[in-house]
Amino acid sequence: MEHVSQTNEPLIQLTVDRVVEDSTTDTRIVVLTRTDGASEHFMVWVGASEGEAIRRALDTSTTPRPMSHDLIKSFGEHLGIKMERVVLTDVKSSTYYATVFLENKGVARTIDSRPSDAIALALRCQAPIYVTQDVWKRRSGQNLDAWLSKLETKNIGAQEV
């Protein structure tokens, strides 16, 4: 597995705060915050259906039919595979890469993943989400908090029309 930096710096734990709709591009922005209380955000742009898969996991409203990530969770429950954690491990040209850590009967396995799949599954399995210090430092949208709040205000306005 490829890592940009192999350091022993501690990982930063994140929690999904909300999923914001970017109606101009039909994408979704997953907004994550640090569990240590630091105020900066971490944002990941994902496709509409991937964003909805994360949103559904957040609002705990059960969908009438098991969706794709519910099926993966169900495979895990049947086979006894435990999801240990998700780590956002790399960023290249504004594209994030994630690694999913799995364990079954003492056998540990990792799989490479898009952040959207990793986060959608982590939320369903109550697994923690981490980012490396390196990826945290190189995150995009560091100055986008103002833009984000404007986007959300605009969306609220649009819904009222």
Binding site: E50, A53, S68, H69, L71, I72, F75, G76, I81, V100, L102, I111, D112, S113, R114, D117
Partner: peptide
């Protein structure tokens, strides 16, 4: 997502 499912 289904490629991820297969990898899993």
């Amino acid at each position: 997502t289904h490629d991820f499912m297969k990898s899993y």
